[in-house]
Design a protein around this nucleic acid. Structure first.
Length: 493
RNA sequence: GGCGCGUUCGUCCAGCAGGUACGGACACCGGAUUCUCACUCCGGAGGCACGGGUUCGAGUCCCGUACGCGCUGCCA
């Protein structure tokens, strides 16, 4: 590419299955690369495999990207001058390009079946795993006619050059494949359908893509793409060959590439658990890249500012949920209080704690306690169990069984009775007054250690052994409800 | 089998042009704070896959081995 042309990166998934985190990491790096360089991100859908592609998957792709704020300059729903951006709508283009390449002698018709290739390999004493033997390159017209007369339809293969294919990978440096190690690839099926081997480079060329950043599984396909690009340039379809960068895998537990089937790879699992885009994006960026040697929490804006694909690591990264949660928690705590409330409401609704449209009283309570919850969760959905006690119908309230068994035993009775006595005498139902009254009654009065003293009260009030701070919780719950719960918790009642 | 990529604490990222004790983060362990949990703070344990070579000196360069992964499709 020339020095003056703008950067054009692309993200081109196949709509097969639910978007997974490795795919999103690739999208993120392409996006950050484009944004950092003031270029464009092209979003293209590679739906040439009708058997596996689905509209549902397509919708999920857009949904996931939009949720995360990864936007595109050209692609589905936004258009662009090089559209259409769904390969299923570009059939004529591929047919046209294939015809050009065939006419120019870059492609040739091949009739060999796999069985025939294998037989020839064996007959020559070669390993059949070597693949196609380029046999049909030299077919005569008469031979081709004979195959056709026999009812055979040819695939179209690309003539690979007899030279080493090398490039400087943006992530891995110089890479070279020896001449003759890559058989002529099929670009068009014998039913006329174009394959990925054709459509991907053709679209990249037509869409003027300057930088191809993709998963390392595609690295071995780069030589044949380089060869196709050279052919495309010779027939005037491509003006330049893009640069390539192969991103490391995102691995799951063990040593396996995170696959679409692995439930822990599902992007929406993280959304449902209450990862926020800031946190998930930050963590994903850490998979193969770092912003500085002593820092790993950063904003999307900082990512864009600093991103450099040549500093991406070449080795596979394992997805560590614990670290992802830690990073997410940091971003959750950094939210301003109102923003946190807005974001947590859908989770509380889904968890049955609040209606989808909370009323003013509920909103006020939530706003009051939200800061105390915000600093205690790593993912938003944790708020559900933490806040249930505050919004639940009183008739349905009951301490969790395990907590009750453990804490609301005979020893708890004097504690609860003393608490009730002290609290009933309170004039002002406020955090400070509640704290003072309980401390006087339990710590000074009964001589209990604080952590011992407050456990029964906590379980009686919140139903759990772990909760937001107790006095604040009681103030928000209200005097009447709080006292009622304490009464009910007294053993024998 | 062939080709390719990779290999620094359990995990992720630093350590980019070789030079005193390999740094940070998450996780883990211990402690401080504390009404629980969390946050915060302090401390700890833990690593250059192996073998050669180059060099006064190698995690850093070269070669080999091992291991892992990928590709080797009329999937993408």
């Amino acid at each position: 590419m020339s020095e003056t042309s703008e950067v054009r990166a692309r993200f081109c998934p196949s709509p097969t299955g639910t978007p997974h985190v490795g795919l999103i990491r690739t999208a993120l790096f392409n996006w950050a690369f484009a944004r950092h360089n003031g270029g464009k991100l092209v979003f293209r859908i590679e739906d040439t495999d009708a058997a596996r592609d689905s509209q549902e998957s397509y919708d999920q792709l857009l949904d996931g990207l939009r949720w995360l704020g990864i936007d595109w300059d050209e692609g589905p729903e936004v258009g662009g001058e090089y559209g259409p951006y769904r390969q299923s709508e570009r059939r004529e283009i591929y047919a046209d390009v294939a015809a050009k390449l065939l006419a120019a002698g870059e492609l040739y018709e091949a009739f060999s079946t796999n069985e025939e290739v294998e037989a020839r390999r064996k007959a020559a004493g070669q390993d059949p795993k070597l693949g196609y033997d380029n046999f049909d390159r030299d077919l005569t017209d008469a031979q081709r006619d004979a195959f056709r007369a026999d009812g055979r339809a040819p695939v179209l293969r690309l003539k690979m050059p007899a030279e080493d294919l090398a490039w400087t990978d943006l992530v891995r440096g110089d890479i070279s494949f020896p001449a003759g190690t890559i058989p002529d690839p099929v670009l068009v099926r014998n039913n006329g359908e174009p394959l990925y081997t054709l459509t991907n480079p053709v679209d990249d060329a037509l869409m003027r893509i300057t930088h191809v950043l993709r998963g390392e599984d595609l690295l071995p396909s780069t030589p044949r793409q380089l060869a196709l690009y050279a052919a495309l340039r010779r027939v005037g379809v491509a003006e330049f060959t893009p640069e390539f960068g192969h991103l490391p895998y995102v691995m799951g537990e063990g040593n396996k590439k995170l696959s679409k089937r692995d439930p822990s790879s599902n992007l929406f699992l993280y959304r449902d658990r209450g990862f926020i885009p800031e946190g998930l994006l930050n963590y994903l960026a850490l998979l193969g890249w770092g912003i500085a040697d002593d820092r790993d929490v950063f904003s999307v804006a900082e990512l864009v500012e600093a991103f450099d694909v040549t500093t991406v690591s070449a080795n596979p990264a394992r997805f560590d949920v614990k670290k992802a949660e830690a990073i997410n928690g940091t971003h959750v705590r950094a939210l301003d209080a109102g923003d946190f409330v807005t974001r947590v409401i859908p989770y509380l609704s889904a968890g049955g704690v609040l209606p989808e449209q909370p009323d003013d009283a509920q909103l006020a309570k939530l706003a009051a306690i939200a800061p105390l919850v915000q600093e205690r969760v790593t993912v938003l959905s944790e708020s559900v169990d933490m806040l249930r006690f505050l919004f639940i119908d009183e008739a349905k309230f009951a301490p969790e069984e395990a907590a009750a068994t453990k804490v609301l035993n005979a020893d708890a009775e004097p504690v609860l009775r003393a608490s009730i006595t002290a609290l009933e005498a309170l004039e002002s139902w406020e955090t400070a007054a509640i704290e003072q009254a309980l401390k006087d009654a339990l710590v000074d009065g009964l001589g209990l250690k604080p952590r011992k003293a407050f456990a029964p009260v906590r379980v009686a009030i919140t139903g759990r052994t772990v909760s937001p701070p107790l006095y604040e919780s009681m103030e928000l719950l209200g005097r009447e409800t709080s006292l009622a719960r304490l009464h009910r918790a007294v053993p024998g009642h």
